[in-house]
Write a protein that binds this DNA or RNA. Structure first.
Length: 220
DNA sequence: CCCCAGGCCGCGC
DNA sequence: GCGCGGCATGGG
């Protein structure tokens, strides 16, 4: 549908205009230079840790790992489980995440595996579901895989009146209606999250002052 | 006190 | 093939 295609692009451009480039995914390049690890490893770790968890809490856990020089697949694999749990504590679900991180780090080593791995293969790893797989593909592997999260669903539901509950269906809808541009995929997802946090909040959305209120179905 | 956060898995039906 | 509870910390 041509109409939703142009409206979707318009939404992207408006959000970009309003919030500027987000430059996701944030990684500490310098840390990885010093430790001989790959920044992509940090993206994978962050993707696991941020599951249903605020990024603020994830940052604390990442800092803890860095402090022990363990923010890498090798570090996570070699660390005792108890030690890992302790460091991951601020990110919540820390026992689950410690176990799953070990599994993920081992399965994805060496990190060059990311260059050929498929979405299905990623999702077979315990702890990696649809969204985490897509985030890894998009931000670590550089593939054109649009990421859907709770924020994305909420914004799209309000702006377009689209009630696509099914993850795969909504993902396809984005991918069919966007130009195949890696930076656009990355920025758009980040912008949707930023927008959902600032204005399009779950409870008490601040529609007054919303930068995309003009095109929002909810306000018609 | 409540709800929410950059989800996923295992279970019962 | 679904809906649901459990997982857990920190902030508003």
């Amino acid at each position: 549908m041509r109409n939703s295609r142009s409206k979707l692009l318009k939404l992207y451009e408006s959000l970009l205009e309003a919030y500027g480039r987000q430059n996701w995914w944030p990684v500490d390049e310098e840390y990885h230079r010093r430790h001989g690890s790959d920044p992509r490893e940090e993206i994978v770790v962050g993707a696991i840790l941020t599951q249903n968890t605020s990024w603020k809490n994830v940052e604390r856990a990442l800092e803890n790992l860095k402090g022990e020089g363990l923010l890498s697949f090798r570090g996570i694999t070699s660390a005792p489980l108890q030690k890992l749990e302790e460091l991951l504590r601020p990110s919540g679900y820390y026992r689950q995440k410690a176990r799953r991180l070990k599994e993920v780090a081992q399965t994805l080593s060496p990190v060059s595996r990311l260059e050929k791995i498929s979405r299905e293969e990623l999702m077979r790893i315990k702890g990696i579901g649809q969204e985490t797989a897509d985030a890894i593909l998009l931000y670590a592997c550089g593939r054109l895989s649009f990421v859907i999260d709770a924020y994305t669903k909420r914004v799209v539901e309000r702006v377009f009146g689209l009630k696509k509950d099914a993850y795969e269906e909504l993902k396809r809808w984005f991918e069919e209606n966007l130009p195949k541009d890696l930076e656009l995929y990355r920025e758009f997802h980040a912008l949707l999250d930023e927008h959902a946090k600032r204005y399009c909040k779950k409870r008490d959305p601040e529609c007054a002052g919303c930068p995309v209120a003009q095109m929002c179905l909810k306000l018609e």
